[in-house]
Amino acid sequence: MPIISLKNLTHTYSAGTPLSVSAIENINLDIESGELVGIIGHTGSGKSTLVQHLNGLLKPTEGKVFIDGEDIWSNKKKIRSVRFKVGLCFQYPEYQLFEETVYKDISFGPKNMGMSKEEIDLSVRRAADYVGLRHDLLNKSPFDLSGGEKRRAAIAGVMAMNPKILILDEPTAGLDPKGRREILDMIVDYKKKTGSTVLLVSHSMEDVASVATKILVMNKSQVAMYGSVDEVFSRADELEKINLDVPQITRIFLGLRKRGIDVSADVYTVNEGCSRLLSLLNGGEC
């Protein structure tokens, strides 16, 4: 059974007025448990609207959202509990920090869930470990942290709810290359340790290619593609048509093929590319 299942999901902003805009239209999608799904699309393609349906922040205009086989809107009063099951971390999450100490801030979610003191303590420390936040920082004011540490503390605030599904909306926005790398590694690591399903919204094909198991491409309020990294990037022409790039390394191999060199282009990381070229140069097959 898929952990996320969307049936004919449609959302229209300002429905019933002349200003109405469909942000997503008739989306059907199943996501299996344990995947790390990279969600890609232009600003305005509907990705943000889509993810806000998964934890019930937005209510579908039409269609249904099933999490763990359960229709999340079957009981309106229980919608808050869906938010604990599906953790959503927004873009620039450091702007949500508000408590006196980092510890208190991370425990905001667990407290809202009604966890006991011991459970909260355990969750907070575990979440700090997931994001690589030193425990001596927990007693500091979140406003005294560096930019990168703030980002980690804020992500920990969502992880501390032990969600089954974790959604991160551009967690690397505004970070430098090293900071981006660290956050991506941390996400892969978190998934490995907890076995949860992770959805990662990103603008960077390179980032998504290096960590995701599946890729979801949104375009003009619709799901344009959903499949494994291979399946999606093998449709480079179609991606180009909707103005999305494949990673540069893939483009290099596609370019080589166009020049008549017999090499397959399912290369998404520099290391893969290097070994493939080496075997080609050494006269081997690839």
Partner: peptide
């Protein structure tokens, strides 16, 4: 901005 912050806190279970 208010809308964004509200959504972020709601996502952490703020009532």
């Amino acid at each position: 901005e208010i809308e964004k912050i509200m959504n972020a806190q709601k996502a952490r279970g703020a009532d």
